[in-house]
Each structure stands twice: as C-alpha cells, then as structure tokens.
Design a protein around this nucleic acid. Structure first.
Lengths: 265, 265
DNA sequence: CGACCGTTTGAGTGAGGTCAACCGCTGTGG
DNA sequence: CCACAGCGGTTGACCTCACTCAAACGGTCG
C-alpha cells in the first residue's frame, strides 16, 4: 500500500515537464513565503499515490492520471506549511509524517481543526476564498506532495476519474468534519478520547500500519484542543483507560488492548 | 437578488430535455423513497440562481450554465428531504424556507450539524460515500431545487466556471464546518449563542433580508443541539442578552439592537 | 548541571447540565 | 364553544463534569 518513504533529491527550480510534455509553471509555489525548508523533487506518481490512493483505491483505477506532476517538500516539526491569510494555490498530500491544522480566534484562542496523517490530504480550506483560512503545522518532521490546484482543476475537466477523486476527497473532509462536530457537541470527555483513539487506529489500519499500536505525535495539549478539552482531562482519560486495562501507554506510544471496551464508550 | 418564490407546477415524470437537447433521466430521483410530498417543476434557471448565486455572484458570470435542468420539490415542516443511508444522487439548493441536517449517533443521540437557509446548498455530505450520511429535515415548509449530481459533474467538466462554483460550494462547507468546530471546541455558551446570532444575521443580509430582525425557525432544542448545549442554556443566554438590551425577542422573532456588544463576546 | 517542556495527579471551583415547576399557545375532540 | 392535552419556552434549585491552579516528575537540550 502506501510506502511513506521520502525521496528527496536536488531541487530543480525550473518548470517541470510532465510525461505528456505539458508545462506546469512553478511560479505559484515559489511565490509563497518560505515558512519551511523546501525540497523539490520529481514525483510524478507520488501525487497519485497519495491524492488518489487515499482510502485504498486500486492503482489501475485511474487511467492517465500520471499526467500530473508535482514537487515534494519537507516540513520540519513545528514549522508551518501554510498560514491563514496566505493565497491558496496548492493542495497537499502527506507523504510521510503528520500535520495539524489550526484555526485562530481573533482573541488568540486556538482550535486544532484537523489531524492529517500520511496518505491524507491537506489544504482544502483554501478553495472557497482563494486564501487559506487556517495554519498547517507539522507534528513531526514530515514530507508533503505539492499539487498545484489550477493544474488539478484542468486535469479534472479532462478525466472524470480524477474529478471523481477530487470530489471524494472534499466530500470526505466534509463528512469527517461533521463527525467531529458530533464529537464536540454531544460526547463527554471519555467518549471523545475513546472515539479519537479508534479514529486514529482506523486511519493507521487503512494505510497498512498496526491498528493496535501507534505513536500519537501530538502533545496532550494539541489532542485536547482537537477534542475540545484541556490537556489535563486528556491525560486523566488516558490514565483511566490504562487503569481499566483498555490501553497501555508509554508516553506517546499507545497500545489498544481492548477494542470492544473502547467502542462501548 | 434571490426571490424565494416557489413556482410549483404539474409534475412531468418523464425525462427532461435541456435547452441543448441533452436527455437527463430522472430515474434516480424517482427511485428515492418519497419521504416528502414532491412537486416537480421546470426550473432551468433556478438551479443557477441558487447553486451558483450563493454568495451573491453576478448573473452574467456564468456563460452557458443554463444547460442544467432540474426540478423543484417542496418539503413540509418536519418532513425529511433525505435520510442517512439513502443513496446519494442529487444535491439541493434551498429555494425558500430552511432545513437542518442531523447526524444520529448509534445510541440515538442527535447532533444538528447544519442549518441551511434559502439560497444555500444541501446534500454535499453524500458525495464521499455515494450515500447520505445525515438526515435533512425541513424547519418550516420549504422548497428546494434538485440538482442531479451526475449531470452537474458532466457540466463541470465542460465549463470551468461551473466547476469553479461547485468547488467553492464544497470549500465553503468545509470552512463553515471548521468554524463550527472552533465554536464547539473553544467558545463558552454566551459566545456560542452570540456567534450564532451574528452568523444567521449575516446570512440573511447576504440574501438581501434584514440583518437585524429575523425569525429563528428552529426550536431552542435544535439551536442547542447545533451549538452543543441544552435548550435551557440557550434560553438563559437569550434572556441574558435581552436583559442587557443587546437583543429584543418575541418567541422566535429576534431583533438585534446592539451589534457591537454582540460582537464583543 | 540547570532550565524548560510535556506529562501526571490532586484539590477546589464554576459553568453548564439536570430536574422540576409553571406559563402560554395551538390544535383537537366532546 | 370550551376543555384539555401537548408542545415549546422560561426560570429556579441543585448537582456534576470538566476546568483551573498547583505541585511534582522525567526527559531533553544547551
């Protein structure tokens, strides 16, 4: 399935040429403020493996989608991939690592609005306003694939399979967010943490990783922000789960030992 | 701007023919269980006025978008436009009235995940799974425009302006939902209600209605569910605002008398 | 080695939930 | 036409869940 091996190479800043011979200028990319170390790399199939493969599609499902070329970029832990207010021109596919998206209230309060693991998409928040509406920050040293939105739109008009994939991607974000609204609006602290653990577990499984053992790369505070509670409450819930024998935890390493119990919360 | 006058007419159940002469079968529509009284009506420009006009676009912005034909449908107060689990085939534009979308937890708890006023879109939750993931229920006698998703996709591949509009529509939902996550995760009860009133006010204004005086068609309970709190707390907050002279209320009729105060919460 | 960060755990508090009573309106059936 | 039931809304009293504040600990980095 997804092999999140970063393949950084030397960075040719010149326009890239697709297999089909089409030119895709990179000016948009280079115009964006360099908030993170950037490493460009040819990765003609990478975009597909990540933008299109999410949710495990067969590789042969998309015919000539290899036509989209994009570059890779690394984002160091804690650094910002894009910021609220910046012009939107690319969407991203996480190649390796993970990022969070953060919405900042005018009074400074921050809310983590999304966690994006390897193989998942990022940046769709910018489509509606041509401007990003949140900050994307790496939770660990990560690598993302840059997919120029304009080129993608063109491609979507040419092949319906690609159009289908993009629509699914946006639709999935919509569904994920409504689930999160349910979590924030209707569940208590224990249920929120349990639901979150199961969600992360399932997303790991979908990528071929162990569903029962994984690292939570974020801090308790970030988890709390995402779940609408304080870091102390997150910690207490995790301790409670451990005491009940539902999980084992060593710092950020989580091992789920009793899935049914977790699901019954 | 938007004139939410329902124009019901007799219902021709036969396939409709677009101005361009293309056939758009209605079998998908008629296959859906009739959970609400259905009134079909030609409305070739209506889809555009609503799907494309949202956020007040100039009518001349889209060239040959009149090509999309759809039917209108009325939904009585309390009845369901679509249900979770039903196959997805149409998106909807609210012509008049308003609807809520509701997500149901397995234990029966319900969360209102969206309020959709006249001129706004509905049904995007079904795109990701080809199945609706929530229930859409009318808050008052309403009328919606049915936009066949397959036909819309085809159109989006033909004209980039249409593609642009659909992407914006989905992007707007994504942004709206992240804002709601911020509200649910970070704001207290007073701030939530204030934010909600300002949001509804702004959406009314965008459609040319009074921003300072409007009917909240939903019950306190529905409002509470949307805002992640109980109906009693909603009632208390509204009473508090009235006591402070920030709003006047007569049942469901709200008059905002002090916008700055509302914004400073 | 010391400073700092992330985490855990405890004690006390408060915002909002729960339960209950009451009011007004609407619709219905005698 | 009225009586009554039921629903939606408001308000009060009480309680609880999660927040706040604080202390202590381990790991990491300079």
């Amino acid at each position: 399935m997804l092999t999140p091996t970063v393949t950084p190479s030397s960075a040719p800043a010149a326009p890239l040429r697709t297999p089909a011979g089409k030119l895709i200028p990179l000016n948009r990319t280079s115009a964006r403020p360099a908030t993170a170390l950037r490493q460009a790399a040819h990765c003609s199939s990478c975009a597909m493996r990540h933008l299109c493969m999410p949710q495990g599609l067969a590789a042969d499902e998309m015919p000539k989608l290899e036509a989209l070329i994009c570059t890779a970029q690394t984002v160091k832990r804690g650094s910002t991939l894009y910021r609220s207010g910046e012009p939107f021109s690319n969407i991203y596919a996480v190649r390796s690592g993970s990022l969070k998206t953060v919405l900042t209230h005018r009074d400074g309060r921050e809310q983590v609005t999304g966690i994006h693991l390897a193989g998942e998409a990022l940046g769709l928040d910018g489509i509606s306003e041509d401007t990003h509406t949140c900050n994307a920050v790496a939770l660990e040293d990560s690598s993302v694939c840059i997919i120029p939105y304009d080129a993608l739109k063109t491609l979507c008009r040419e092949t319906s399979a690609m159009q289908h994939r993009l629509h699914k991607l946006m639709g999935e974000q919509i569904v994920r967010e409504t689930s999160q609204m349910m979590l924030l609006g209707s569940l208590n602290a224990e249920e929120r943490v349990a639901t979150f653990l199961l969600d992360v577990s399932e997303r790991h499984a979908r990528r071929g990783y162990s569903p029962s053992e994984f690292h939570l790369r974020m801090t308790r505070e970030e988890m709390g922000s995402y779940l609408g509670m304080t870091l102390e409450t997150v910690s207490r819930m995790l301790s409670r789960f451990q005491k009940r024998g539902v999980i084992e935890l060593e710092g950020k390493l989580i091992r789920i030992t009793d899935f049914p119990a977790l699901r019954n919360m």
